[in-house]
Each structure stands twice: as C-alpha cells, then as structure tokens.
Design a protein around this nucleic acid. Structure first.
Lengths: 145, 145
DNA sequence: CAAAATCTATTTGTATACTAATGAATTTTG
DNA sequence: CAAAATTCATTAGTATACAAATAGATTTTG
C-alpha cells in the first residue's frame, strides 16, 4: 500500500457529496428564491402566519410545534409578527400559562396576497427537476423529516 | 361554487407539503443527528475543517466560497476554530488583503478522528431510504443546489 | 500610469435555531 | 388531596446566515 492510499481515509471523504452539505446548499438556494419573491416575510414568519391562517388560532408553543420551531424560536417570530400588527396575542383564560395567538385581518390579508408567490417559490425551487422527478424527490425528502 | 370552494385558494396551500418546509425539517433532523455524533463541532465548523484538510490551506474568503458561507459567516466560524487552536491564520505575504488559513495539527487530528462519525451521520440521515432511493435522492437533491 | 472596478476582510444589524435554566400554572399520581 | 411531573412561556447564551456599509489592497482598463 502506498502512502497515498493510507492517507485516503481522509481524502475519500468528499464534503461536497455529503447529504448534509448538499441539503444546506439546496436550502440556501431555496431561501434566496423565497427572499426574492416574498421580501416582506421570512420563510419562518410566513410559515407561522400560514399555519395560523390554516388553524384559525393556537397557543404560541402549539404553533411552534406545528411549524417545527422550538419555544425560543417561535417566541421571536411571534414577537416580530406582533410588532408589525400581523398577529395578536392574548392570555388564554382557561390556562394562564398559554399565550393565545391569532392572525389579525392585516395578517390574513398579507398571507392571502402571498400565497400565489409562495406557490411560485415551490415551483422555482423544484424547477431543475422534471415533473416525475419532482414527485419522486418530494416523496423521498418527506421520508427524511 | 360553494363558499368552501371560493375560500380554498388559501386552504389548499398546505404548508407541510411545501418543499421549503420539508427541506427545513429534513435539515433539522440531520442537524440533530450531527450534534449527537459529533458534539465537539458544528456542521459548518466541521465543513470548514474538512475543506481545509482537503485543500491544504486557503484564504478565508476562498474557504467560505468552497463551503458555501459568505464572508461574514466564515469569519465567525474561523474565529471560533482559531480560539480553540484548530486552525491558524496569517496575513498572506503576496496579498495584504488575504488572511491565509490552515488547519493546525490538532485540527487535522480532530478531523481525522471525526471522519468515521461523519460517514455514519450521512448513513443515519439517509437511513429511511433504501439503497436505490438514496442514490436517486442524492442525484435529485444535487440538482437543487 | 491613474482612475475605476474588483476583491478581501471586517463590522453592524437582523433573524433563525438550539440548549439550558427559570418560574408559574396545570396535570398526573401515589 | 398533596407531592411530583409536566407544560408553557421567557430569558440568556452560542452559532449560523445574510444584507449592507466600510476600508484597505490589488487588478483592470481607458
């Protein structure tokens, strides 16, 4: 065995071919597409608003769970949405721990106005794939959640 | 058309089915796997170290480009790696703008010791897929970078 | 060659993310 | 029912990410 081969334990670890790295790059590309099409909301802010419009209302932590954000993260997101008047919060009367969150009229309107762009974001993100490939990709990606 | 159908413009936007959302969830799962297997380095720190070991050395911005981090991000990563003695930096003599970065012996050793776990991270991330599906998935994901 | 353009690194500011700790409220359980 | 466990929200701390502005160094170009 040559030195080159003995050294290859490290050398055949190609960063650019690892799932994690490619996943991160694909996310970055998607984030860029999102920002260019919906500059007024970040993806997580949009997700929170979308889920809120979907559910009607929810406690802050519950909303976090439904949008895959931990308690600390969803707090910041809701704080920023509230500052902009897109959501409103009230203490839950039945459970003094809970903070009840719902979208305001302005929030619902903004969400409605963004849905079309959101669909285009999905399309543009998947644009490099054929129709068949998109279905296959989404199916496989779903298994990795 | 019923009211229900007129309202469906918003209702048939299912957040949980959008690429961006699933991509984020898959990344979160991968990040969790990474943290449990290589707690001493973050994925980006590991990426910088891996690329540095792969390249030998590079300027800070160059390394950022090779690891998909912008100048501000790679700066923080390198600062933290340097504080821990895993990389060393020197002003490039030929180009006073450039900060020359290379892994230290300790950095190379840590990387070498982590490579096996890194392979397992990739495996575990893709574990829900069959061998065929993995290849297909990686091929499709690569197109979305 | 000098002006313009580009490149490099840094800094500031904003926004996720996650961990861990905390305190208050509610549920569960022995 | 009272103690224990859990849940909810908040806070503090660390680490990506990216935009935008800046300053110094190097290239390009007219």
């Amino acid at each position: 065995m040559s030195d080159t081969q003995q050294n290859s334990v490290q050398q055949d670890y190609i960063l650019d071919e690892q799932v994690g790295f490619v996943l991160r790059r694909a996310s970055q590309r998607h984030l860029g597409i999102f920002a260019s099409r919906i500059p007024e909301l970040t993806p997580t802010q949009f997700a929170a608003l979308a889920k809120l419009c979907e559910l009607g209302a929810a406690s802050q932590n519950e909303l976090g769970r439904r949008t895959a954000m931990d308690a600390a993260t969803i707090k910041g997101v809701i704080d920023r949405l509230r500052k902009r008047g897109l959501v409103a919060t009230v203490k839950d009367a039945n459970d003094q721990r809970r903070l009840f969150v719902k979208a305001t009229a302005a929030g619902e309107e903004l969400f409605a106005n963004c849905v079309e762009q959101a669909r285009k974001i999905t399309d543009e993100t998947l644009a490099p794939l054929s129709e068949k490939e998109r279905l296959m990709f989404l199916q496989l990606l779903s298994k990795l959640q």
